[in-house]
Design a protein around this nucleic acid. Structure first.
Length: 855
RNA sequence: GGGCGCUUAGCUCAGCUGGCAAGAGCACCGCCCUUACAAGGCGGCGGUCGGGGGUUCGAGUCCCUCAGCGCCCACCA
């Protein structure tokens, strides 16, 4: 059988051809009979299904795929599933915009509902029931997932596509609810009625991990309170509209200015409410006037003060971000304060602020004019308005008090790059609240709980009812707690389902368990858990990585995986962070189509682990050129090779390579294999690629040129055979080294002369190459290449063709290097078209090139 | 306020445990239709490796310090 390289090799259509072949052959199918020690398990990040893939996905997933392919070639059975993160707010938001609907849980299910069509952006959203809304979510995510899968396949991810999951599917819901109930049974999860950060647009509580600070314009308003002896006490506030919720003033215990006031009572402006003056260490004497008003609740410090100073609660802000429209219990407001309140009630906070400032100004209790400042305010990372603090009943997983355990688990992990561990540790050390997992949303895993309703109609939250694990997953809005029937739902003496869902992270923190078949498939789980690798981008260390460690620690008493590989971010060509609002998001499909998947992968894989990398058309062209070069160089090599040469064939034997230059190249190649292997074992795919690529170009430019004429037979069969065998060994090795990065072109070329897929071929081993190289000295190749370079330079300088004859060549160099050159003198002579070559001992390398026909 | 990373040719970046007479690609300039490759090949120009100090026979590479950029965490009346 002889190799069959096409006359005109092309990249066109390779993706389609090979994606189909791999699927048909099950090239990446996981063999679940493999024992744990042979398995390499990857906890693939389930991308958020929200319309279209981002170039950042391509970047990070390519990194993972190179490692997956490397491990597979090293003989590991790679467990490489794909998940879709479709539950949660991102999907809800997309569904609202896409279909023009709004979820109203109070509506009954409408089985005949059809989505509104031909609507305009200005149209009001159509209210739909929760079940209808969830149906729409399922419909849209199903189609989005198809689109995503198509892009992943185009990119050439070596995922086992028979192993997919979605974070909203039944398996995930079961795992999520089971995990929750087990924590509940162990007291690691609890509910609490407490002030929590609240997004007034999404109308849900928000966890610490989902916060971000944003700089916002604001203004200090100086308000005059009335002290015990009629002496004014002035405070600065950015939230004057919260004055009716003021429950105390606070200053630092050591602040001599205010020490006389501690324990006394002052009166609030406008409302005339008597409030105590308290001392607390968190009060900052440098801020404002050094004494602050405590409101329920303006910010998290208010909550701390309120709790630690046991202050009363006076709520004026509603969950929708407006002033409440009723009279709050105002037993301590002064007579007449109702008239002030009537000016504020029901208004938005912004309107209320404007109005109260006017009122304060009129009453003379605003001191001076507001001073504009800029300060940072907490936002929900997906939100548009500052978070408020609202008291509500929520469920929490206990994370406080476990800091040392979490840090210890962090130490058990190998971090790539290592400095990423610092981000994890600073997050763990900074935890200041338990993990809030309940959300007041609709599309997600329901909390698997019901509550009894007393004969008096009061819901008894303290005695939740929960299902046996065998019943999971349950939807408490339609399923029944044991011992009840449907007629008792929401009735006195009956029960009510918990209306909330679990936060996305409460489910995706279990991806190793979900993908690995925890409890559902113990046989599989034992083979893959704890997994080997968690690949992800560094921005979600505090969410996904941390929460997965927490769940695994609590549930299994182990780390969820042994390695964490953190990818950087993709920046736009101007090195700015990409965001939808800036409109600089790069979508991957056009790049894949223009440059080819291998070139896009080449760009991605050239981004160092953890390092932000810009989209660079130049780099994409480099990748494109490389893949074309692989095709052409391979075609040349195979035109010299009479039969397949690889492990087990005759040319693999050491006897085949006799020429010093060929041996030198193989020795260099062996070093390369060691380099690339070491790099990959350290998760440095970029280094492996860079080394391979550098070798390959030098191989083409120097070695191939040097042996070309000998390979054509200029010096007899033996010299040609040596070259052919070395070329074939090199090609086989190079293709396998490139395979993790350029899966399409490498398998294409592999198929020209080898059996099976290169992606199931063994990773090259340097030992075999060293045997073939015998005593090969890399110096031979170095000096030969340098000499050839000198000849080329002379010809270029003389503006003559590379085919021009060299009448007389003098090579000067040190004795050892000249000795090395002697072994390749004939090759150099033929490649440079040198008629007569002489050497002279010298301190340093130089050449004299006399062009022209031999005299 | 605490921490991490980065700062090397015009641009994007390699240079891992100190030995480099400082590298690659892109861009730029020039040459070459050479039978693997002209959507190519070959060659050239270009940097006092952010500043300053130190250790060393020797520092882009280690230590100290300063500066700029980016990010993480904490705090925010």
């Amino acid at each position: 059988m002889s190799p069959t390289a096409p006359d005109k090799p092309s990249l066109h259509g390779l993706e389609h051809k090979w994606a189909e072949r791999w699927e048909a052959d099950g090239t990446y199918r996981f063999d679940r009979t493999a024992t744990r020690d042979r398995v390499y398990a990857i906890d693939t990040p389930p991308p958020t299904v929200s319309g279209s893939l981002h170039i950042g996905h391509i970047f990070s997933y390519t990194h993972t795929d190179t490692i997956a392919r490397y491990q597979r070639m090293r003989g590991r059975e790679v467990f490489y599933p794909m998940g879709w993160d479709d539950n949660g707010l991102a999907t809800e938001r997309r569904v609202q915009n896409y279909f023009g609907v709004r979820c109203d849980p109070s509506l009954p299910y409408d089985p005949d509902f059809v989505t509104p069509d031909s609507r305009k952006a200005s149209d009001r959203p159509v209210p739909v029931s929760r079940p209808n809304f969830v149906e729409l979510c399922n419909r849209l995510t199903a189609s989005d997932e198809k689109t995503f899968e198509a892009v992943w396949r185009f990119l050439g991810l070596s995922v086992d596509w028979t192993m997919t999951y979605a974070t909203i599917d039944e398996r995930s819901q079961r795992a999520s609810q089971r995990g929750f109930l087990r924590l509940l049974a162990r007291g690691l999860v609890y509910q609490s009625e407490a002030p929590t950060l609240w997004d007034v647009d999404f109308q849900t509580a928000v966890a610490q991990a989902e916060l971000e600070d944003r700089e916002q314009p604001a203004a200090y308003h100086r308000l005059r309170f009335l002290g015990p002896d009629g002496i004014p006490v002035e405070i600065d506030t950015t939230r004057p509209e919260l004055l009716p919720a003021c429950v105390a003033l606070v200053a630092h215990p050591d602040d001599e200015r205010y020490q006389p006031l501690f324990g006394t009572t002052v009166t609030t402006p406008l409302f005339g409410a008597p409030v105590p003056v308290k001392a607390h260490r968190l009060a900052d004497p440098e801020k404002g006037t050094g004494i602050a008003m405590i409101c329920t609740f303006g910010d998290v410090t208010d909550v701390i003060w309120w709790r630690e100073l046991t202050l009363p609660t006076r709520i004026v802000v509603e969950r929708d971000g407006r002033m409440r429209d009723t009279h709050p219990p105002h037993d301590f407001w002064a007579h007449g304060a109702d008239r002030v309140w009537d000016e504020l009630r029901g208004r938005t906070l912004k309107q209320a602020r404007t109005r109260i400032v006017e009122l304060l100004r009129e009453s003379g209790e605003l001191v001076g004019e507001p001073q504009a400042i800029t300060h940072s305010v907490k936002f929900y990372e997906k939100g548009n308005r500052p978070l408020e603090i609202v008291t509500s009943r929520q469920w929490f997983i206990r994370t406080l008090g476990h800091t040392d355990e979490f840090l210890a688990r962090g130490n058990e992990l190998s971090w790539h790059p290592p400095y990423m561990q610092a981000r994890y540790e600073s997050w763990v050390r900074g935890l200041n609240s338990d993990w809030l997992v309940s959300r007041q949303r609709f599309f997600g895993v329901p909390l698997p709980l019901w509550y009894p309703i007393g004969e008096d109609g009061a819901v008894d939250h303290d005695r939740p009812l929960y299902p046996q694990e065998a019943r999971l997953p349950v939807d408490p809005s339609t399923d029944l707690p044991d011992g009840y029937n449907e007629s008792q739902r929401d009735r006195p003496g009956g029960f009510t389902g918990d209306p909330d869902i679990l936060d996305t992270w409460a489910t995706s923190s279990l991806t190793p368990q979900i993908a690995g078949g925890w409890e559902d498939d113990p046989n599989l789980f034992a083979r893959v858990f704890p997994m080997d690798l968690r690949p992800q981008a560094y921005d979600i260390i505090r969410t996904w990585l941390f929460s997965t460690v927490v769940r695994s620690h609590f549930e299994h008493g182990s780390v969820p995986w042994h390695h964490a590989a953190l990818s950087g971010f993709v920046l736009d060509p101007d090195r700015k962070k990409m965001s939808k609002s800036k409109g600089n998001v790069v979508t991957p499909l056009p790049l894949l189509e223009e440059y080819g998947a291998d070139a896009v992968r080449h760009w991605a894989a050239s981004g160092r682990p953890g390092v932000d990398t810009a989209v660079d058309p130049g780099q994409l062209k480099v990748g494109r050129r490389l893949t074309i070069k692989v095709l052409n160089a391979s075609k040349f090599v195979l035109s010299r090779v009479g039969e397949p040469i690889g492990p087990g064939t005759k040319a693999a034997g050491p006897a085949g390579v006799t020429e010093p230059l060929d041996r030198a190249m193989l020795a260099r190649l062996a070093d390369l294999v060691d380099d690339a292997t070491t790099a990959f074992d350290g998760y440095d795919y970029a280094r492996a690629l860079e080394r391979t690529e550098a070798f390959f170009w030098a191989f083409c430019d120097d070695y191939v040129e040097l042996v070309k004429s000998r390979a054509y037979g200029s010096r007899g069969d033996e010299g040609a055979a040596s070259a052919d065998r070395a070329l074939a060994m090199a090609l086989s090795t190079i293709l396998r080294l490139f395979a993790p990065f350029l899966p399409y072109v490498s398998d294409e070329v592999w198929s020209w002369w080898q059996q099976g897929s290169v992606h199931r071929a063994p990773w090259p081993e340097s030992a075999a190459l060293r045997v073939a190289a015998v005593d090969g000295d890399p110096l031979v190749l170095d000096v030969a290449a340098a000499t050839l370079g000198g000849i080329r330079k002379a010809k270029t300088t003389a503006h003559v063709s590379m085919r021009a004859e060299v009448a007389h060549l003098v090579v000067r160099d040190t004795a050892p290097r000249l000795a090395a050159l002697a072994g390749a003198a004939a090759d150099v002579g033929e490649a440079g078209r040198v008629t007569k070559m002489v050497t002279e001992d010298a301190e340093a390398f130089s050449v004299d090139v006399a062009l022209g026909e031999p005299s």
